[in-house]
Design a protein around this nucleic acid. Structure first.
Lengths: 351, 351
DNA sequence: TTGAAAGCGTTACCAC
DNA sequence: GTGGTAACGCTTTCAA
């Protein structure tokens, strides 16, 4: 008895055992008091809760999850936190998870790190679900997750044929929308600034854009940005506009690149949109700010987050057994960074 | 035997027991193979690792942490993800935690939610440390954490007398620096746009700013922003500049408010800095972008993150027993959003 | 409704 | 160096 007392002292944590001893009931009773569905008398529950509060007892969710096999932790993998697109995504997801009693375990792979490398680490944490943004996983890892019954949802990446759920903006359609819009504004010499070469998002936007332009017999300049950063957009814009045959519109693979491009051009005396129209993709909040007032394809962030949670099993309906891809349409936001190249229209629109 | 086989089947998870059975060794051996410091023969370790990989076994860190009392999870509490200040902080912290084998459990309190309410939830997860940004905790909660030996560090909040570690930029000094700088540029009618009334960061910046101005006999206009948002800055700037006696410089409590203010003024025909100088506080990456080119007090983000980790016990040195506050000095970034009001100087500086 | 006891998947201690 | 066994703090049968 002396020994057990000392043991309790050593561990500062108050356990259910301790509460039980104080109340003179069994430890199971303490557990029941904290389980909403357990059968326990109201009186007992209040008594337990009272002394629990007094002793500062809180159930250890780690120990609990060993039995329940649920940690209430969802892992979110983001390539970086510098691009506002990802912070918006993180915000939307976290805001939905918390009211459902779930916590967000954040993971930002270091530049060279593949998602496949970090997935085992996440699985070790016995997370209840994994959301992977702008990256894909090998089919081997996908199978490993499936075997453990850990739901995985890819966000902003669509991999046909992969046995995994995915939610993505329809990038091809978005590229087409933008092409159509710029054609409607009588642009005849558009350019596209690509992001990372491997990124399917960038490639799909490009193919949709270029494809639609070609249907109208309009050729597209392609400039490699390198990556989805402010600086990449900054440099690419200058390269394009300092050509002997500069474009009359530049469509950037993402908003953050467009911001860099706009800043670069303005710093060099160009007027937007008079000298060149600028468009982006994503529709981050900043794109609506007066400084940029950027025409862009807006991701339906909240719909996407809803879809992700549904595929993770948070929805009312059953999660589809077979891998499903939810392709969501973006909305073109017609703003001040683009303008019609037709003199008549210009007069009408801009007075 | 039949029964146990079925049990294993049911739980898709591969356990150490399973690996042990396959290899014909004890389960302890499996555990040792995964413990770097354990005494085990090289040959055995390779054998264990091989079959573990084959069976897809990964130690369950939840079960492990029940014994080790370490989860390798650090909780980070941020008021929001819309202000780039917090995403930079989150980025810096996560980037340092991951190489140390620690994961980030993110928590963003909903608007009405107090940190004191959510702290118990975090503690239930048995996190190894808690980083709380721009908020404080009651001394009761601080004691609760201390009792559990869970280190807590406040970031961007300095609470004298509270028994808790804190890392913060010296906001009073920052306010003074900015006052001195603007006085040096011969501003005679400065204004300060405050953030949330309760926020000590905003209040300290204000008192430093106003105090230093007063030493030179310069009065300061005070405008309440309401909160640290783009929109709040937008509205406050307009209110100030539409006064009959507008200021010649506006110092915003944070960069994000300054961005809103600059956009508002430019949209209304004001030229920055010719009509009014604009300054911010935080030094987020965007402040350096050409569109804003904002004069601001730059938080030493990496030093702050280093200091936080040190106080959490990640440093080489022992963590101070008594609550320590690390007050770090910001650096004034002299950029294009401010200019001298002295004609002579103007000619010199701007050609 | 309550208590006793058997897990959950590890680590840690003790023999050998 | 290795195996057996007792924790870790909880949930969940099964009896009473």
């Amino acid at each position: 008895m002396n020994e057990s007392t000392r043991a309790k002292r050593q561990s500062q944590r108050v356990t259910a055992d301790e509460v039980a001893r104080v109340l003179g009931v069994s430890q199971s009773t303490i557990s029941r008091a904290f389980t909403a569905t357990a059968s326990i008398s109201d009186e007992m529950r209040t008594r337990v809760m009272a002394t629990a509060a007094e002793l500062g007892y809180q159930p250890n969710v780690i120990a609990r999850s060993l039995m329940t096999r649920r940690t209430n932790i969802i892992a979110i993998v983001l390539p970086n936190l510098a691009d506002p697109f990802y912070t918006v995504v993180l915000d939307e997801l976290t805001q939905r998870l918390q009211p459902r009693g779930c916590q967000t375990l954040l993971f930002v792979p270091t530049p060279g790190q593949e998602v496949d490398e970090i997935l085992p680490t996440l699985l070790q944490y016995q997370v209840d679900g994994i959301i992977i943004t702008s990256a894909t996983v090998s089919s081997a890892m996908a199978r490993a997750c499936a075997k453990r019954e850990t739901p995985v949802v890819l966000l902003n990446r669509y991999v046909p044929g992969l046995e995994i759920h995915a939610v993505s903006c329809d990038n091809v359609a978005g590229g087409r929308q933008m092409a159509e819009f710029l054609l409607g504004q009588h642009h005849r010499r558009p350019a596209f600034v690509a992001g990372q070469l491997e990124a399917s998002t960038s490639m799909d936007r490009q193919s949709g854009f270029v494809g639609r332009l070609r249907e109208d017999g309009v050729e597209c300049l392609i400039e490699q940005g390198g990556d989805h950063t402010y600086q990449a957009g900054f440099d690419a814009a200058l390269r394009l506009m300092l050509r002997p045959d500069p474009p009359d519109a530049i469509f950037f693979a993402s908003d953050i690149m467009a911001f860099g491009g706009m800043d670069a051009l303005r710093s060099n005396g160009f007027i937007i949109p008079d000298d060149v129209s600028i468009a982006g993709f994503n529709g981050v909040p900043m794109a609506a700010w007066a400084s940029y007032d950027l025409t862009t394809i807006r991701h339906p962030f909240s719909h996407m987050a809803d879809a992700v949670l549904e595929l993770l099993g948070f929805g009312e309906t059953e999660v589809p057994q077979s891998p499903t891809t939810r392709l969501i349409h973006g909305e073109l936001m017609d703003r001040g960074s683009t303008m019609s190249r037709s003199p008549e229209l210009k007069r009408l629109v801009r007075g």
